[in-house]
Simulated scan of single mutants.
Amino acid sequence: MTEMQNDPGRWSRLADATGFALNIHAEQTRKGSEVPYISHLLGVASLVLEHGGDEEQAIAGLLHDAIEDQGAHQEPIIAERFGARVASIVRGCTDADTLPKPPWRARKAAYLAHLETAGPDVLLVSCADKLYNARAIRIDLQTHGLAVFERFNAGHAGTLWYYRALAASFQRLLPGPLSAELATTVAELGQMATALDR
């Protein structure tokens, strides 16, 4: 059996992107918790790789919230440092880059419409992002009950509407195990929320 050669250049760009993400998101925590935000970004990159993504798609997974959370000035920095493809994916995963953000429902409806013409790179990273979030909401729903929806602008009904719409879109636009798990997780969220609301 031949041992694999150690390639010092393999994953070096992903390592660089991890450091970049750690730096720009250093002070952020997950909504309504003390969990470092970087956990979400690492989780999304991991899902991208687990579902066949390449290094640039994984980098975009790490940086998918950079424009939305840290400002539009990050886009040219990302393009220069990680390339036009990565910057394009990050832009495609961004639902707003202004403060204050546009009204929630209109912004989410626009994002759903945007997915209809998004390329496979954006669909993969965005679906990984939404699956990670849905999993986290499911865990928090088990732990904290319906109070978890108080963290979200849209509350219980709006959050479930959005995730159901996302799951339906991704099943159609990106059929496969990733979107299937999103659909299953979102269905479980709805069932749990209904049971807790009785």
Rank of each mutant, 00 (worst) to 15 (best):
N6K: 15
N6S: 12
P8S: 06
G9K: 11
R13G: 11
L14Q: 08
L14C: 02
L14P: 09
A15M: 03
A15G: 05
A15I: 01
D16L: 13
T18H: 04
G19R: 10
G19E: 11
F20A: 08
F20K: 00
F20V: 07
A21N: 03
N23W: 00
I24K: 11
Q28H: 13
Q28M: 12
G32K: 03
E34V: 10
V35I: 12
V35R: 13
P36F: 04
Y37I: 03
S39V: 13
S39R: 15
S39G: 10
S39L: 12
L41Q: 15
L41Y: 07
L41G: 08
A45K: 03
A45Q: 05
L47G: 04
V48H: 02
L49K: 14
L49Y: 02
L49T: 11
G53A: 06
G53M: 05
E55L: 00
A60C: 12
L62K: 01
H64C: 11
I67K: 02
G71Q: 08
A72N: 07
E75Y: 05
I77W: 04
I78Y: 09
A79M: 09
R81S: 05
R81E: 01
R81K: 09
F82P: 05
R85A: 11
R85Y: 09
R91C: 04
G92Q: 12
C93I: 10
C93V: 09
C93Q: 13
T94K: 09
T98H: 15
L99C: 04
L99M: 12
K101C: 12
K101H: 15
P102Y: 10
W104C: 14
W104H: 14
R105H: 12
R107S: 14
R107P: 08
K108Y: 14
K108E: 13
A109K: 14
A110F: 12
A110D: 15
A110G: 11
Y111M: 14
A113S: 13
T117L: 09
A118T: 09
G119A: 10
P120Q: 05
V122P: 10
V122G: 10
V122Q: 08
L124I: 02
L124Y: 00
L124E: 00
A128M: 06
A128N: 00
A128W: 00
D129M: 07
D129T: 11
L131W: 00
L131Y: 00
L131F: 01
Y132L: 14
N133H: 10
I137G: 03
R138H: 07
I139F: 08
L141F: 06
Q142M: 01
G145K: 01
L146K: 01
V148Q: 04
V148G: 04
F149G: 03
F149D: 04
F152H: 09
G155D: 06
H156V: 01
H156A: 00
A157T: 04
L160H: 02
Y162R: 02
Y162S: 07
R164D: 13
A165F: 10
L166M: 11
S169C: 14
S169T: 07
R172C: 08
L174C: 03
P177G: 08
A183T: 01
A187Q: 11
L189G: 03
G190D: 04
G190Y: 00
G190I: 07
G190H: 01
Q191D: 13
Q191E: 15
A195G: 08
D197Q: 14
R198N: 10
